[in-house]
Amino acid sequence: MSDRTFSDAVADPYDAPPLSFTDREDRTIEVRAYDGSDEEMEALVEMYDAFDPSDRAQGIPPGREDRIRDWLENILDEDCLNVIAWDGDEVAGHATLVPDGDAYELAIFVHQTYQRAGIGTRLIKALLGYGRVSGVEKVWLTVERWNRAAVGLYQTVGFETSDAESFELEMTIRLAEPPDEEGG
């Protein structure tokens, strides 16, 4: 159904979580895959409940706790891949891959308190590393074209613009060779 185009070249292989690093504000940030627990889900609800509405993208995260819960239940499903950046017990950021046919749709959110500290780059690399070791072949996303910081981040980790004709840019990346190709 989709006529989305993906590069033939496989992107750099990033390390999968768990991993940790010191951000530019000297905070120790740990990046781990979502463990499926209610505790981690509640910590995410708390982060999104405090999320600045001006950083919303195309309607997500939604703006009310009940809608946040509905949305999270959907994207924390077993067939999705979720990675969380932790500052102790507090969620600093969250990135997710949601299945869409033979590809996955990506989104990433870093809480305002933790922005411009290098967390987004580490978090998205960890998610792509997690995707790679989990057998994800292709990833796509949309981003508002005025959001230069986000577009720059996606380009840095290897995304290429695949459709520039709509309000939002569509960008794609390949994490693995197609299964039916020789030498794959």
């Binding site: 195309q58 309607g59 949305w71 994207i75 949601v98 869409d100 989104a107 709509s166």
Partner: peptide, 15 residues
């Protein structure tokens, strides 16, 4: 429409 992620995507006619 909304994407699998839940993002709102405006169609080409509406644009």
């Amino acid at each position: 429409e909304t994407s699998p992620m839940g993002k709102i995507q405006i169609g080409s006619i509406a644009e």
